[in-house]
Simulated assay, not measured.
Amino acid sequence: MTTPVQFTQEFWNNPHPVYARLRQEAPVHPVMLPNGFEVWLVTRYADCKAALTDPRLSKRQGAGDNARQLRTSTSTPLTKHLLAYDPPDHTRLRRLVSKAFTARRIEELRPRVEELSAALIEALRGRDDAELVEDYAVHLPIQVICELLGVPIEDQADFRRWTSVLVSASAGGPGVPEAAAAFLEYLLGLIERKRAAPAGDLLSALIATRDEGDRLNEDELTSMAFLLLLAGHETTMNLISNGMHTLLTHPEAHRRLREDPSLVPAAVEEFLRLESPVETATTRTATEPVTYGGVTIPAGSMVAISLLAADRDPERFREPGEFVLDRGDNQHLAFGHGIHYCLGAPLARLEAQIAFTDLLAAFPGMRLAVAPQEVVWRTGILIHGPAALPVTL
């Protein structure tokens, strides 16, 4: 590569040609992010999968560009969560939290998720058009995670604003310290109220959780609530938006899915592979020199693992740039791999399957209201999804 990656709006709108070139010519390549952090970007599937489980890449020393910026700018405790630790601390924290995300517990949420989706669909009936991100995709997961954690739904506008700032920090956006401080103050107050008057929600349960005498300390509790709120709606919002954008630009797949809803689970996995809602995993730091694809990354370097690039690697997937509705062997990395595999993956899958089933049934004639190239995508190397998705219903 003779020119560095240019993080322009053109890149955010369609990063796939750049990632394809990187995979072919420079699969492990240093890039300077707009926020000033230099990272080594890993783009091939095999290298990414290996890096996700490499103990020489530490989360503690490089807990991600957003988290590192939060820590250095605000000294906030919002970074003391699962994604910022290695074993044994990570093992301890995951053990304390994972009980809330068992397959049985998630499946019990199905009737309520279906009820919330039906209400959002009903609000759209009779309209000629909609902006699908704001009118549906964000509200389903945000209502689910608010109810699960016991967060007042009327507070969603505030923490949506804060999380939007924080996840775009890698794009050099302003306001990160202020958003972090405001979010921290909000969570501290919420936890204090839950401790005084516990309810049957997850946050109350996390406050009371014990495991052989162990418990979450105050910073861990605050940080875990932050992570669950952020990841609990940002990723699924983009999964729904990305999936609908894909369907509306692939008419034959759209038709097949409308006619055979039993294909929805497979379609969700293909949406995850083709347009991962998480563009790169939160960064790690090399504790010693590490080599991938014949390139040695020096000790102390920050490493970014591109899930979006990995899942379009032609060495791993046939027709990697195509939406293949009945794709077999779809072992994508959209939820990560190894000990940091996404704890909320079963919930994201449940919400997405309900969302696509309901949207396709309610609005079989839905189409984009603008040309595909006119859709503007969000900035930042962490999250991948359209900023808005105008549709004709």
Rank of each mutant, 00 (worst) to 15 (best):
M1Q: 14
T2D: 06
T3W: 11
P4N: 08
V5L: 07
N13K: 01
P17S: 11
P17T: 12
V18M: 08
R23Y: 04
Q24R: 09
Q24W: 05
Q24G: 02
E25N: 06
P30R: 07
V31P: 05
M32I: 03
L33E: 09
G36W: 07
G36N: 10
F37D: 10
E38R: 09
L41V: 04
T43L: 03
T43M: 07
K49G: 01
K49N: 00
A51H: 02
P55D: 06
R60F: 08
A63E: 00
G64R: 04
Q69L: 09
L70C: 14
T72W: 13
T72C: 11
S73Q: 14
T76P: 01
P77T: 08
L78Y: 05
T79R: 06
L83S: 03
Y85P: 00
D89H: 12
D89I: 01
R92D: 07
L93M: 06
R94I: 10
A103Q: 04
R105M: 13
A118L: 01
E122R: 14
G126A: 00
R127P: 03
A130F: 05
L132Y: 00
E134L: 12
L140T: 02
I142T: 15
V144E: 07
I145W: 01
G150L: 11
V151C: 13
P152Y: 11
P152S: 15
D158W: 14
T163H: 06
L166H: 12
S170Q: 08
S170W: 13
G172K: 02
V176E: 02
P177L: 06
A179P: 03
A180V: 09
A180F: 05
Y186E: 07
L188I: 08
L188E: 10
I191H: 15
E192S: 15
K194L: 13
I207S: 14
A208I: 11
A208Y: 05
T209Q: 15
D214A: 13
N217S: 11
E218I: 03
A225I: 09
L227E: 04
L228F: 09
L230Q: 06
E234Y: 09
T235I: 10
T235W: 02
T236W: 01
L239D: 00
I240Q: 00
I240P: 00
N242A: 03
G243L: 00
H245R: 03
L248Q: 01
H250C: 04
P251M: 10
H254V: 01
H254A: 12
R258E: 12
S262W: 12
V264L: 08
P265W: 06
A267L: 03
E270K: 06
L274W: 08
P277V: 11
V278S: 03
E279S: 15
E279N: 15
T280P: 04
T280Y: 09
R284L: 13
P289A: 12
P289H: 10
V290H: 02
V290C: 07
V295T: 15
G300Q: 10
V303T: 02
A304F: 08
I305R: 03
E319A: 07
G321V: 13
G321Q: 10
Q331N: 08
L333Y: 01
L333Q: 02
H337F: 15
Y341K: 04
C342G: 12
L343I: 13
A345D: 03
P346H: 09
P346C: 05
A348I: 05
A348K: 00
F356A: 02
T357L: 13
A361W: 09
A361T: 11
M366N: 03
M366P: 04
R367D: 14
R367M: 10
L368S: 05
L368M: 04
R378L: 12
P390Q: 05
